[in-house]
Design a protein around this nucleic acid. Structure first.
Lengths: 254, 254
DNA sequence: CATGCAACCTCACGTCGCGTGAGGTGCAAG
DNA sequence: CTTGCACCTCACGCGACGTGAGGTTGCATG
């Protein structure tokens, strides 16, 4: 029909809102080539062509910034899409792990009363990892257990949190970095390992042996300790050495 | 040891940043009960107890607002967690569908050149749904095809987008609402169906029959038309009637 | 020609969970 | 007295818009 369209028309035919088109104009994703009387946006046919490319790419979950890069900076769409695929896989894996955690608690949570108390919640989460206690028994002597307990007293409610929740999370994060190709001196790795070190010296209240025992428990049976299924935790056997290297670097630099 | 802690100490032991603790204080998720000299935050043991509950719930992916509601408004944690589970399932399903779309294009995209052009992109996406053309052939006569094509000429590049991308998306969204228990007069349903109506009258450029034919193609073989696997699209046979009801309501109200 | 109204315009704040400064205060050690 | 550290309070930034607020333009009608 015509060769010029107003925002309203474009919005109506595309199903977007006028505000969205304004926004896309602001950030340069789709700026109509000229303005008419009174500063009104006038979209041409080539604008519409670009619009439908943007819509298509957006439907693949790309950020507006990525789309702009694709269209204007001439980024290779293959790279962008494979990156997006990686990103999606990571996001799905993260959400799935989260889902399993929540599901475990919901299923075990018949006894969950109407109120939230620290102990009850943590007990439920602990229930999800029944194997850890036994593994710990094999590796940690009674003396060390006593030391751990005394550490527990000083840190109060924190102990349960760090043992049950933060520690496995740290292991997982470092493993993820390792698989992604990070070296032991990567700043993120160093940060996580430093935190692990802090937690372990803190747990055994200064004694080195108890911490070493807990570490050896993790080294020998990461699956049970972390509560992850065997398949997920199996490659973690490479992780122990990696963490040791990182720790050596960390101490060397202090 | 002591019974009061500063922000810095709490941050160090919890692994959070000071800024995070400030933020949590601002929004009332964890406000230390009193301030010391110079307005300094003083965390007590009960604050720490609350802190570790917050950390635990946060680790389940709850928003700070939900956590606050759990702790202060006494929301039933079972409800919150089952809601969270639903939410996670939806999010995972969304991301998985997205992943499949992207993966299909990446796999088929060996020919994808260094540049992004509308046609090439859309061709690839169309490749993911090879079955649709044949189904359309069975339902749409040559005359209707000609009508559709003339409609295509007026709308230009929009046609490919709406046929290949927006239309299946609309079907999926309405189906999701239907399964979630929405009635045909639900505002969101009405909005989507209105859009579908607009698209179909627009596609056949005023003629009713062609649009009806496309609709009947969808009714008879939603799986092929949408590109979804048979299992996903199978229950959509209930959807056609649902959409018809919604359309009737929509027209009645105009 | 005046009026009404729809469509357009430009700010500008809110969302969520903080990161990252900027700029100021208080307190102990050198 | 200065240095330095830990603390404090603003306040902007992110992403992709929604949702007004308040002003201007264009077209149709009286």
């Amino acid at each position: 029909m015509r060769d010029r369209w107003t925002v309203g028309e474009v919005a109506a035919t595309s199903g977007l809102t006028v505000r969205t088109l304004h926004h896309w104009d602001e950030i340069g994703i789709l700026s109509p080539q000229n303005r008419g009387a009174g500063g009104r946006r006038e979209y041409t046919e080539s604008d519409l062509g670009r619009l439908y490319v943007v819509l298509t790419l957006r439907q693949l979950g790309l950020s507006l910034e990525s789309i702009r890069a694709c269209l204007d900076a001439g980024l290779d769409p293959r790279r962008v899409l494979t990156d997006q695929l990686d990103h999606l896989d990571h996001a799905i894996a993260d959400l799935s792990r989260l889902r399993e955690r929540v599901a475990t608690i919901v299923e075990a949570g018949g006894e969950l009363t109407g109120k939230v108390d620290p102990a009850g919640m943590l007990t439920l989460m602990r229930g999800a990892r029944a194997g850890a206690g036994e593994v710990l028994d094999r590796h940690v002597s009674k003396d060390h257990r006593a030391q751990l307990a005394s550490g527990a007293a000083t840190v109060g409610p924190a102990l349960a949190y760090v043992l049950e929740i933060e520690w496995p999370e740290l292991y997982r994060r470092v493993e993820e970095l390792r698989v992604a190709g990070a070296r032991p001196d990567d700043p993120q790795v160093q940060k996580s390992v430093a935190r692990m070190d802090q937690l372990s010296t803190w747990l055994n209240a200064g004694g080195e042996e108890a911490g070493a025992a807990v570490r050896s428990a993790w080294r020998d049976d990461p699956a049970s300790m972390s509560g992850e299924p065997e398949q997920v935790a199996a490659p973690w056997r490479y992780l122990a050495q990696f963490v040791d290297e990182a720790r050596a670097l960390l101490r060397g630099e202090c």
